[in-house]
C-alpha cells in the first residue's frame, strides 16, 4: 500500500506531506500529524485515542483540545493551543486549523508551502451537533480524508429524529420502572447524548470516564449536566434514570446496580442490522460523529481538491469511487494504527 503510494506520488510530492510508518509527515516543517509513535513535533487533529498518542516532545492542537490532551496524555506534556483560522509559520510552511465538527476542539489541519495547499481532515462530520464548532470546507489541492463510513449503505438519519427515538425509549422504560443505559464514546458521543436528552423524564448519571471528560471540558469552559455515579451512590437514586457509559461498561458488573435496565447503543455502526444484533443490546441508535456517505462526497467536492487521499476506513472503496465518479486522483492510504480497543475512537 505504502509502496504503491510512493510510486504514484513520487513525481509531485517530494515536498509537502508523506505517509510514514509514524504518521503523516511534513519534512519541510519537520512535524507529524496524529503520529502513532513518539516524535518531536506533533500536530493533533483531536483528542481521540487513535489520533492523540503519548510520548511526543511537543504537541500543537486546537485551543479547546488542550485540556483534553493533558487529561489523556498526562498533565506534564508540552502542548500549545491554536485558535481556528489563526496561522503559524514553521520553516516557511504556513499552518492553520479549521473546524472539523467531529468533537470539541477537532480540527482540520491546513498546510501551505509555496502556493501548494494540503488539508488533513482528521475525523469530521458535516452535521452541526450544536456542541463542536461546525465543519468548514477548506479549499485545497490535496485533501486527506477519513472514510470510516465510506460506503453508500451509510446514510445517517436526522439527529433530531434519533434523539426523539432515544427519549421515547427512555420514557417507555421509565413507564415500566426501568432505568436506561446509553452506551457511547466518552468523548463526543456522551456530550451529544446528554444534550439531546429530555431531562424532564428523569435524572441523568455519568460513568466515571465520562465525568472525567466533563471535568476537563469544564476547565475549557464547556458545561454539561449529569451526575457522576459514585461507588456509594444509593441504588434508590437510579429510578427512571439514564446512565451514560462507555463501551467498556457493556457486560461488566458495574451495570448491576442499575438493574432493572435496558441498554441503547449509540453509534453510526448501528445502521446495520447485523451490527445491532452483534452488540446484544436492547436497541441501537444511529448517532455518529463521522461523516456518512453523502457528507463525505459533499466534503470532498467542496474542497475543490484534485488529489484525494482516503484513509481510516473503507479507503480502497472510497479512493476507487472518487476516481470513477468525480474523475479525481483518488489514492488509498493505509492507516497503520490499529486501535488498541474500540473505545473512544
Amino acid at each position: 500500500m505504502l509502496r504503491n503510494y510512493f510510486y504514484t506520488g513520487l513525481l509531485y510530492f517530494i515536498k509537502m506531506l508523506e505517509f510514514s510508518d509514524r504518521g503523516i509527515y511534513c519534512p519541510q516543517a519537520d512535524v507529524y500529524i496524529d503520529p502513532w509513535k513518539p516524535v518531536g513535533k506533533a500536530i493533533i487533529t483531536h483528542a481521540h485515542s487513535d489520533h492523540a498518542r503519548p510520548g511526543s516532545d511537543v504537541y500543537l492542537c486546537q485551543l479547546h483540545s488542550t485540556e483534553l490532551l493533558k487529561q489523556r496524555l498526562g498533565f506534564g506534556i508540552k502542548v500549545e493551543g491554536l485558535e481556528y483560522g489563526k496561522h503559524i509559520q514553521i520553516n516557511g510552511v504556513d499552518i492553520s486549523l479549521f473546524p472539523a465538527g467531529h468533537i470539541i476542539g477537532s480540527a482540520q489541519v491546513r498546510l501551505e508551502y509555496k502556493g501548494e495547499i494540503w488539508v488533513v481532515s482528521g475525523d469530521y462530520k458535516l452535521t452541526d451537533d450544536g456542541i463542536s464548532t461546525p465543519f468548514e470546507p477548506v479549499t485545497c489541492h490535496h485533501f486527506i480524508t477519513e472514510c470510516t463510513f465510506g460506503l453508500p449503505i451509510y446514510k445517517f438519519p436526522d439527529q433530531q429524529e434519533v434523539f426523539d427515538d432515544m427519549n421515547r425509549f427512555w420514557q417507555d422504560n421509565a413507564c415500566e420502572g426501568m432505568n436506561t443505559v446509553f452506551i457511547g464514546y466518552s468523548l463526543g458521543k456522551a456530550q451529544r447524548i446528554v444534550q439531546g436528552l429530555n431531562a424532564g423524564i428523569g435524572p441523568v448519571f455519568l460513568h466515571g470516564a465520562i465525568a472525567n471528560i466533563h471535568e476537563a471540558l469544564a476547565r475549557q469552559g464547556f458545561a454539561f449536566p449529569g451526575e457522576r455515579v459514585q461507588g456509594d451512590t444509593p441504588k434508590e437514586q437510579f429510578y427512571k434514570a439514564v446512565i451514560i457509559a462507555p463501551t467498556s461498561a457493556l457486560g461488566s458488573p458495574w451495570l448491576k446496580k442499575f438493574s432493572p435496565y435496558r441498554i441503547g447503543f449509540c453509534s453510526g455502526w448501528m445502521q446495520l442490522r447485523g451490527a445491532r444484533r452483534r452488540r446484544g443490546v436492547d436497541r441501537g441508535f444511529i448517532l455518529s460523529d463521522h461523516a456518512d456517505w453523502d457528507q463525505l462526497n459533499a466534503a470532498v467536492k467542496a474542497t475543490g481538491a484534485q488529489h484525494i487521499y482516503a484513509t481510516h476506513g473503507y479507503q480502497h472503496v472510497y479512493a476507487h469511487w472518487v476516481r470513477e465518479a468525480y474523475g479525481l486522483e483518488g489514492h488509498e492510504v493505509q492507516s497503520f494504527f490499529q486501535p488498541v480497543d474500540s473505545e473512544d475512537i
Binding site: L151, P152, I153, Y154, K155, Q271, L272, R273, G274, Y314, V317, H320, W321, E324
Partner: peptide, 26 residues
Amino acid sequence: LAGLPMWLFEECYYIVGDLAETIALC
C-alpha cells in the same frame, strides 16, 4: 436506481451480508 456502479453495490452487499438490507440501505 441508487446511481451506484455494480462493483460498489457488491462491496456493500459483502459488508452487509444480506441482500434485502443492502438494497434498502442503498
